[in-house]
Simulated scan of single mutants.
Amino acid sequence: MSTLRRVLLVVAALLLAIPLAPPASAAPVLVWSDEFDGPSGTKPNSAKWAYDIGNGSGGWGNNELEAYTNKTSNVALNGSGQLVITARRENSGMACWNGGNCQYTSGKLTTYNKIGWTYGRIETRMKLPYGQGIWPAFWMLGANIGQVGWPNCGEIDIMENIGREPNTVHGTIHGPGYSGAGGIGAARQNGQAWSAAYHTFSINWTANKIQWLVDGTVYQTRTPADLGGRTWVFNNKFYLIMNLAVGGQWPGNPDGSTQFPQQLGIDYVRVYQG
C-alpha cells in the first residue's frame, strides 16, 4: 500500500469517528407585525385591525362599564412609534348593560376575520395603565368561535393586569370545563409597577404546549397534562385581541382613587413562526 493511500485511509477513519453536530434549527421568521409607525392622531392600519364597538352582551360578559369606540380619542397612533388606547371617563352615548349610557369610553382592537395563526411566538411590548378598576389585556380567541362558541373555541390570555394588583400580570388558558374563574394559569410578579416602563409579553405556542414569557423569561408552561382529562383546544387557528377595559367582575369598578384618562401604550405586536 502506498504511503499516500495509507494517509488517506487514516484521515477518513478519523473523520468517521468525529460525531456530526446536529443541524442548527432555523430561527423563527417574522410572519406578521405592526410597528405602529405613522402620524400622530391617526387610526391603526385597517388592513390589520378591526374594532369591537359598544358594551357587548352583559358588559362583554364581565359587567364591564366601558363602551368601546373607533374614535381617535380612544385609539390612535402617537407619532412616536406607538399605538395608544385611552380609557376616558365620559358619557359614551352608548347603552350599558346596567341601564343608561356607559360613562366610560375606551378601545378594543382585534384581527378577527382578518388574520389568525396556529402556533408561533406571539409578542407585544406594552406600557400598562394603572388604577382601581383598570383592566388591560393582550389575548387570543379560537377563530372557530362563531361555530362552537366560547369557551369551546379556547382563549389564551397572554397578558392581563387588574389595577388593584399593580405589580402582577396574569397568563391564563380557558376552554371547555376550565373557563372564567376556573381558567388555568399563573401570575408573574415585578419589583415595581408594570405601569412604570415598557415590558415585553409573549407566548411560545407549539402543538400541545404553551409557554408564557415576560421580558424573554419563561414563567409558566401548560400542556394537556394540566387539564385533568379535559379537552385541549389550542391546536387550532386563533386571532388576536388587545383592549383596555374599565370595571367588571374581576377588577372591580373604578373608585375615587382612579385617575382618568388612563393609557395602554403598545410599541409593537409581532408574530414569529418556524
Results as ranks from 00 to 15, higher is better:
residue 72 T to K: 06
residue 72 T to G: 05
residue 75 V to G: 04
residue 76 A to G: 11
residue 76 A to F: 07
residue 77 L to S: 03
residue 77 L to W: 09
residue 78 N to F: 05
residue 78 N to K: 04
residue 78 N to T: 03
residue 79 G to L: 08
residue 80 S to F: 11
residue 82 Q to P: 03
residue 83 L to A: 07
residue 83 L to P: 07
residue 83 L to K: 08
residue 84 V to Y: 11
residue 84 V to F: 11
residue 85 I to N: 00
residue 85 I to A: 04
residue 85 I to P: 05
residue 86 T to F: 00
residue 86 T to V: 13
residue 88 R to F: 03
residue 89 R to E: 14
residue 89 R to G: 02
residue 89 R to H: 14
residue 90 E to W: 06
residue 90 E to A: 04
residue 92 S to P: 00
residue 92 S to A: 09
residue 94 M to P: 00
residue 94 M to N: 00
residue 94 M to Y: 11
residue 94 M to K: 08
residue 95 A to I: 06
residue 96 C to L: 04
residue 97 W to T: 07
residue 97 W to H: 15
residue 100 G to I: 02
residue 101 N to L: 01
residue 101 N to Y: 11
residue 102 C to I: 01
residue 102 C to H: 04
residue 103 Q to K: 12
residue 103 Q to F: 03
residue 103 Q to M: 15
residue 104 Y to S: 02
residue 104 Y to Q: 02
residue 105 T to G: 13
residue 106 S to G: 11
residue 108 K to P: 01
residue 108 K to G: 06
residue 109 L to F: 05
residue 109 L to C: 10
residue 109 L to I: 15
residue 110 T to S: 15
residue 111 T to P: 10
residue 112 Y to R: 15
residue 112 Y to I: 10
residue 112 Y to Q: 15
residue 113 N to K: 15
residue 116 G to W: 01
residue 117 W to R: 10
residue 117 W to D: 10
residue 117 W to N: 10
residue 117 W to K: 12
residue 118 T to S: 12
residue 118 T to Q: 15
residue 118 T to I: 09
residue 119 Y to R: 04
residue 119 Y to K: 09
residue 120 G to E: 13
residue 120 G to Y: 12
